[in-house]
């Protein structure tokens, strides 16, 4: 978490293998990501799912085809089973029966949920979310947060969320990193609820209490 421009999305691009870090390393299970061959990197990336801000569904494909693509590309599963898995994934995100719809035919919130179904298509170990509640109404945002928590508990996946939505931060996170816009470094780490109460850093306090200034 952090203010706009602090590098949250850039960090996410590094974590998801889209951007090579100018300095520093990315480790997955103790494996240095960028020291591996391209093939190995792709294998590691398959263990991650990403939900982008807009859902990033491929507009020329139906919702079902979007979810099925990673399964078709990276597994040798039969088309029949792929269809069943797609149906289950869509049911998990509350989109049962939407398999044949094009992304343009559904709402923004649904597109995000469909993006989530695609992100968990390969049962990833880590699911990254880039501003999941951006552009959603409070109810849809809350529903998405609940869904993320339910999927975390049931799939056992690690969830990494980049956000500045306080409601989502407090609802979902049990650990957090606060990035600073000026120094472009970590300013604080820990449980956001604890940070909100006990952090002695004025910026962190200001951010988590959603105030325009902090009384010292």
């Amino acid at each position: 978490m952090g203010e706009s421009g602090c590098g949250k999305s850039t960090l996410l691009r590094h974590l998801t293998g889209l951007k090579r870090p100018a300095a520093g390393d990315i480790f997955y299970h103790g494996i240095n990501f960028w020291e591996r061959s391209r093939k190995k990197r792709i294998q590691l990336m398959q263990q991650c799912g990403v939900l982008y801000q807009s859902g990033a569904l491929w507009s020329s494909m139906t919702i079902g085809e979007n979810v099925a693509l990673p399964l078709q590309q990276f597994t040798s599963v039969s088309d029949e089973l792929i269809k069943k898995i797609v149906d289950i994934k869509l049911a998990l995100v509350g989109l049962k029966g939407f398999s044949n719809y094009l992304p343009s035919a559904i709402s923004g919130g649904m597109r995000k949920r469909a993006g989530l179904a695609r992100a968990i298509a390969l049962d990833p170990e880590i699911v990254f979310f880039d501003e999941p509640s951006a552009g959603l109404d409070p109810i849809s945002s809350r529903m998405l947060d609940d869904l993320i928590l339910e999927l975390r508990d049931s799939l056992g996946a690690t969830i990494v969320i980049v956000t500045h939505e306080l409601a989502s931060i407090f609802a979902i996170a049990d650990d957090s990193i606060f990035l600073d816009t000026e120094t472009r470094t970590m300013l604080a780490t820990g449980d956001p609820k604890v940070l909100a109460e006990k952090s002695d850093n004025s910026k962190v306090k200001q951010f988590l209490s959603r105030s325009s200034s902090v009384k010292e």
């Binding site: 289950i88 049911a91 989109l95 029966g97 939407f98 044949n100 339910e150 056992g156």
Partner: peptide, 24 residues
């Protein structure tokens, strides 16, 4: 397993209703 029970519950939850005027 607990995870499967939770996932099963999620799949049985009320979902959005697809619009009927969409022709395939």
């Amino acid at each position: 397993p607990v995870g499967i029970r939770k996932l099963l519950l999620l799949t049985q939850k009320k979902t959005a209703i697809p619009p009927t005027d969409y022709s395939f």
